[in-house]
Every structure is written in structure tokens, then in C-alpha cells.
Design a protein around this nucleic acid. Structure first.
Lengths: 131, 131
DNA sequence: CAAGTGTACTATGACATATAATACACATAA
DNA sequence: TTATGTGTATTATATGTCATAGTACACTTG
């Protein structure tokens, strides 16, 4: 199973699809030019509506992560160009601030946060390939 | 003005109230036992509905950040006990993972993220007081 | 042609958000 | 006591998002 969709999560289904595909790309599990399941195929596997998958693919294409070609299919983008918009940068910064505050109230220590951050970057930098 | 509410933000109004009050507490701007504006007063200042403020206060009390006393008012909690629920911990960890992935796609470097993290913890640890 | 693909559109239901308008219970001061 | 300010609860309405369902169209490939 390519993705792991949880219908009971508070995170919207299309958002889960977006997040997980982006993660698989970042980890190198999905490589550039690789073909993704079709809208109908993925929706059948994940037991969700085709429109929901379509919405996720549309947003992923808008972000430059994938490319959809009419009649052919959907593929991982070959060349990924980070936009580096100041607004995006500020958004991430604010999310990080809120995460620090929530960590403070949840009793998560500073060192724990740094440790997790190191781990995540190791996973990405590792360029894993499940071939 | 105690808070800075943006009606045009995608973040719900009551969520903005929650986040900002938690931040003010973490930064030490708001101290334990300090009295908060009444529901009606804050809603008048922020130009939002009293029900929206009430919803935010209710959630903040559920999280143990504030305490509401019928007929008297709402106050910052004296003793804050972090719950340290495994679910909360996992939630924060997942949010951090997604933040790393989004940083990857936004072109935000690892070092930048670490730097921001240091800054935020400095603000909290600083125990600033605007007296 | 047929089959598989992405895409677009309408409709519906469930839910969250926000406002509005009341009403009630409690605490405090006059 | 009364008056005022406080938190709390309820109902109603409007709006938007999420998800599903159903249908249709255009494109690519065999």
C-alpha cells in the first residue's frame, strides 16, 4: 500500500495524501519521473473518493511536486524548483513558533525537539531507496 | 491591545486567541493569577463575537492554561501541570516532521530551522516582563 | 475503436466557523 | 436588597470546507 490513510483523523483526507506523497518524495522512496497510481486506482486502493485524490493531485501539482498529463497519468516532477517565497518562509517560522509553545505546554523538552529534528533530517538526507 | 486578531487569516479566530494567549503566558508577559479581560470586554476590543472569545477561554481552561470563575472573571493558572500525554507528544512529533518536509520544499535550510528554534527558546527562557 | 487516463461540473450531506440574540447563575459593590 | 459585571448555556442563522456521488468530456495508448 503506497499510502496510509486514516479516515478517523482530524486531518482532511486530501491533506493526508498530500503530506504522505511529499514525504515519500523527500525520503527518495518516490523518484523523479516515477509514475503515480491513477486517480481512480489510488482512490480504489485507499477507499476514498476519486474527487478527493484529484484534489490532492491538483494541489501537489500547484506546489510543483508532481506533474499530471492528460490521458497519460501523473508523475513525480523531474526538476523541483523551490519557490522560496517570503510568505512561505514566514508561515513555516510561525508554525515552528507555535510548535515550540505547544511543546512547552505538553512538557516536551527542548533537547527532545532538537533530537527529533536531527532524526528527520537524517531520514531525508539518507536518500533511502526501497528497490 | 492585548491580542492581534486578523479576521482575514485562514486560522480560526478562536484559535488565534488561544495561540496568542498561550504565547503571552510562555513568554512571561502574562503572569500566574493575572486577570484576563472579560469575555465581553475582549470581544469588544477585538471586534469579534463574545461567543468566539468564550470558546477560546473554554479551550484554554481545558488545557489548564487559564481558570474561569463564575461571576468573578478569568485568570492565568497559578500552577501549570504539563499533562505529557503520549498522544500529544506524538502529535507534536508528527507536526514537526511535516514542518521539516515543508521546509525542504520551501527551500528553508536545516541550519535556519535550528536557528529559529534557538531564538524561540531564548524568548521563552528569557522570562521577559513588560512592566 | 475501446480502455484507461486527467479534468470539470453539479448536487448533496455532514461538519466547523462565526455571528446574533437571549437567558441564566454567580460575585461584588453600592 | 438592587445593580452591575462576570462566566455560561442555548438556539438560530449564514457561510465555508470536506467528502461523496454521479456524470460528462478530452486526451493517450493499444
Amino acid at each position: 500500500m503506497l499510502l496510509n490513510i486514516d479516515p478517523k483523523s482530524v486531518t482532511p483526507l486530501y491533506e493526508q495524501v498530500i503530506q504522505q506523497i511529499k514525504e515519500l518524495c523527500a525520503r527518495g522512496v518516490l523518484s523523479p519521473n516515477e509514475k503515480l497510481p491513477s486517480v481512480r486506482e489510488l482512490s480504489a486502493q485507499m477507499l476514498i473518493n476519486p474527487n478527493t485524490v484529484s484534489k490532492a493531485y491538483r494541489e501537489l501539482e500547484r506546489q510543483g511536486v508532481i506533474v499530471s498529463i492528460h490521458g497519460r497519468g501523473t508523475f513525480i516532477s523531474e526538476d523541483f524548483i523551490s519557490e522560496q517565497t517570503p510568505a512561505q518562509r514566514e508561515k513555516i517560522k510561525n508554525e515552528l513558533k507555535q510548535l515550540v509553545i505547544d511543546s512547552y505546554y505538553a512538557g516536551v523538552q527542548k533537547e527532545t525537539l532538537f533530537s527529533w529534528l536531527e532524526d528527520f533530517y537524517e531520514e531525508i538526507g539518507g536518500e533511502d531507496d526501497e528497490s
